[in-house]
Amino acid sequence: MPAIRFVRLMSLPLRLCVVVFASLVALPSVVAGPVVGKLELPPPPDRAPAATKGFLDRQENALAPARPVSVTPYMLVTLEGGEKSAAPGQVTWDLVGESFARPVIGAPAGAEVVIKNTSRIARTLVAAEDKNLVPAGPINPTGPKSFRVTAPAIFTIGDPDAPHLKGKIVVVSSPFVANVDESGKFEFADVPEGAYKLRVFYKDAWLEATTDVTVERKGKTEVSAKVPALGGGKK
C-alpha cells in the first residue's frame, strides 16, 4: 500500500492541510441548498358524500357557510431524479386518536416507518395492500409500531375496528418527499444539485402533471407548481 505508506510519512500539519483541501474540492458535488416551493391550489373540490350517514342527511348550519374542503392534508410532493440518499432514514407517523396526524405521509423506499400511538385507545393496524406490512398486534397507547417499506408503493393503513381511521403511506424512490401545508407550501432540505421532476400526490394517487426542477449549486431553489382541478374523491 504505497499511498498509506505515503500518508504515514507526512507530518501532522501536512495531513490536516491535505484533508481540508480534499474537503473543499469534494463538497460542491454532494451538498446543495434547500428547495422550497408552493403549489398553486385549485379551487377546493366539492365535498364528498359523508363516509357514513345517520338517519338524516347532514345539513349546513344557518350561521356560516361550510368550511371548504381542505386538500392539502391529503397532498405530498416529491422530487424524482438526481442522486439517491444512501440512508433513507426513519419516518414517524403519529396516531392521534380517531385519525392519524396526517392522513397521507411519504416515505423513501427503504425507510423505516414508525407509528406512534399518542391516543388512549389501542389500535390494530393493517395495511390493506399488504397484510404483513404492519407487524401483527395492537399498538397500545403511547406505544410505537415500526416497519420498513422497501419499494415504491401506496399502502392504506387502517383499523378494521374503526373504519374511519385510515391513512396512506406513499413510498417513493426518491429521498425527497414532503407534505404540504395549508397554503400549499412545501420544502425539501439539502437537495443536491441536479435536475428533478416535482410530482404531486393527492389522496389516492399521483397527479399526472409534473414540474421540472433544477437545483443549482448555490442558494435556495424555489419551485412553483400548479395543481390541476381536484375531484372530491372518496373522502
Binding site: 365535498r47 359523508a50 363516509a51 357514513t52 350517514k53 345517520g54 338517519f55 338524516l56 342527511d57 347532514r58 345539513q59 349546513e60 348550519n61 356560516a64 357557510p65 361550510a66 368550511r67 374542503v69 392521534v96 386518536g97 380517531e98 385519525s99 392519524f100 391516543s119 388512549r120 385507545i121 374511519h164 381511521l165
Partner: peptide, 25 residues
Amino acid sequence: NDFGDIAAGRPLVDDALAGFLRDDL
C-alpha cells in the same frame, strides 16, 4: 376525565367541524 385526544377523523366530528349538523350512530 379524558381530554385532549383527537376526535377529528370520525365522520360526524369532521362534518361538524366543517359546518354541518348531522346525526350518527
